[in-house]
Amino acid sequence: MAAADLLVVITDGMLRWLIMYFPVSFLDITHVCSLIMVFIPATTMNSVWLTVAFTFDRFVAIRCHKFKTKYCTEKTAAMIIGTVSALSCLESIPWFFIFQSKYIFNNLPWFCITKPEFYTSIYWTLYGVLHRLLSPLLPFAIIPFLNTLTVRHVLVASKARRRLQKDSDRERPHDPEMGKRRKSIILLFAISGSFIILWTPYVVCFLLQRIALMHGYSPLPPTAGTIGYLVSLLTTCTNTCIYTVTQRQFREQLRTIVKLPLTLILRSIK
């Protein structure tokens, strides 16, 4: 998830703005900027659905104990990550064919402008609706649903566990199992909760704009949509920060990466 979020920062947070503020570079070649416009939704889609996969993984680990031994494995995690990444790229490929060149200089097409048929074709309209449904409307509904089921199960199981401990006169001031469940719930809500909060402005603006277009109302000002979009990009840094704070192994690996250049320098000096 941290790697996927970093790719969003590179594509959407860096390449997009390099195209906007540094004109007439190799990034403005039509095929290059069209490819970047594929990477942007692909990385965003990948980041969003990895959050959904993480939420489902925690749901299985906490609620489905019989299925847990088969599903919660490194092999399954690698398969899910690879599948989500591949499908995200495949779903975003049509964006490459939305743009056309603005100028042709020395037989080289420059700049990307949207083709007129994108606004009139029923196929592009259906594709746009499907894309917005997959990211972020459907995840926006799945994540709270899974979280509700997970929390409900934890609360019921915790009450039953405390009742059994009380009946057997073995109640202890600190229950390790309850501590693990509490940490898992905190991590779950920290990641999925930040996703819901930061994507809410974008989803609300998107729905209001669609309602305004359907009923002939005045659309929202462009600033509102831009702010909602920028706030949604903050999810690319919150997940990494949450992992840094909560996961000991992640902190150790990050510390190793930071120390690696210094270690190499010291070895070369010796």
Rank of each mutant, 00 (worst) to 15 (best):
R172W: 00
K259C: 10
I142C: 10
C72N: 12
L149F: 08
V9F: 15
C241W: 14
D57N: 11
M214A: 15
V151Q: 10
T223C: 04
S192P: 08
T226A: 09
K180G: 00
F111C: 01
W199C: 13
L130Y: 14
A4N: 05
T200A: 14
T150D: 11
T240K: 02
T51M: 08
R267S: 09
K70E: 09
I197D: 03
V204L: 12
R162C: 06
H153K: 11
S121C: 02
M45A: 14
G82W: 05
I185N: 04
T51V: 12
I40P: 10
S92E: 03
L146P: 11
F111S: 02
T73N: 06
H31N: 12
E177Q: 13
Y202R: 08
K180C: 00
R161Q: 04
S135Q: 14
S192N: 08
L188V: 07
E74R: 08
C64G: 00
L208F: 12
I257K: 11
L164I: 04
T69R: 10
D175Q: 09
S135C: 15
M1E: 14
R255V: 10
I98E: 06
A77Q: 09
K183S: 13
I113H: 05
A212R: 00
C72F: 00
T246D: 08
E117S: 08
A141M: 11
